[in-house]
Simulated assay, not measured.
Amino acid sequence: MKIKIILLLLLTYSFALDQNFEDFEQEYKNYQINDPLVNYNKAMTHFNMTLYTYGFRPILKAYDQVTPQFFRVGVKNFFDNLFSPMRFVGNVLQFKFENAGEEFKRFITNTIMGFGGLMDPASKMGLKKHPADLGTVLGHWGVGGGFHLVLPVLGPSNLRDTLTLPAIWYANPVSYIEPQWVSITISTYGFGNELSFKLDEIDEIYYNTPNLYPFLRDAYEQRRQELSK
């Protein structure tokens, strides 16, 4: 059970990676956020930063150096294409039919012309990705985020988005692969490969941002509000 919970968090983080870290600073504003667990959240933010610094970062730096770029990009494209149907459904449930249509076109294009999603011809054709998940669907229809919550590994979240993790996991085709350890291995590898493309952005945020915790908290909450509109 603990392993599945961890994988739920890792999977949701792959959705978080759809949200470009470069957008965070542009969208950052000070406003009131429900944060009754502020002391816990600050401690967990410090834990995540330490885990990244001494765990994920050196491993992924080594992975980046020894793995050919085309291979990492292919894996990244494959997982992105795998999540496209979930983004399609998320946009439909928000009645964002134009976005849903573009996601559908992306999926068909990349699946057929991109050799099962290993390549991304859709982006070259101007078809944009439109992040959407169950949390943004609920937010769109008026369900508040609740209190802010920093999760192990994932970082910033809130009560609403955390409670959607099981549904997101079971909507992922990889979760149905048997035996379970294969599913866990594939999901973890996809998460790590995706994260390897974000090391510079994460370094910039973690090591060069004054008042790191409120910045991450406010940026996350505002980004989720923007996606829920």
Results as ranks from 00 to 15, higher is better:
Lys2Gly: 03
Ile6Ala: 07
Leu11Tyr: 12
Leu11Arg: 14
Ser14Leu: 02
Ser14Asn: 13
Ser14Thr: 13
Ala16Thr: 06
Leu17Ile: 00
Asp18Tyr: 12
Phe21His: 00
Asp23His: 13
Tyr28Cys: 07
Tyr31Ser: 11
Asn34Pro: 07
Pro36Lys: 02
Leu37Trp: 10
Tyr40Ala: 10
Tyr40Thr: 06
Asn41His: 09
Ala43Lys: 13
Thr45Ser: 14
Phe47Ile: 14
Thr53Glu: 04
Thr53Val: 03
Ile59Cys: 14
Ile59Ala: 14
Gln65Ser: 08
Pro68Ile: 09
Val75Trp: 08
Asn77Glu: 13
Phe78Leu: 15
Leu82Glu: 04
Leu82Arg: 00
Phe83Lys: 12
Phe83Leu: 15
Arg87Leu: 15
Arg87Met: 14
Phe88Met: 11
Asn91Pro: 01
Gln94Pro: 01
Phe95Tyr: 07
Phe97Ala: 03
Glu102Tyr: 03
Glu103Val: 10
Phe104Arg: 01
Phe104His: 02
Lys105Pro: 01
Phe107Gly: 01
Asn110Trp: 11
Pro121His: 03
Pro121Thr: 03
Pro121Ile: 09
Pro121Val: 08
Met125Phe: 08
Pro131Glu: 09
Pro131Ala: 02
Thr136Cys: 11
Leu138Cys: 10
Leu138Ala: 11
Leu138Ile: 04
His140Asn: 13
Gly142Val: 00
Gly144Lys: 11
Gly144Arg: 05
Gly145His: 11
Phe147Val: 05
His148Asn: 13
Leu149Gly: 02
Val150Tyr: 05
Pro152Val: 05
Ser157Val: 06
Leu165Asn: 06
Pro166Lys: 07
Trp169Lys: 00
Pro173Tyr: 08
Pro173Thr: 07
Trp181Asp: 10
Thr185Trp: 14
Phe197Lys: 11
Leu199Gly: 00
Glu201Thr: 11
Tyr207Cys: 01
Thr209Val: 03
Leu212Phe: 13
Leu216Lys: 03
Arg223Glu: 11
Arg224Ser: 01
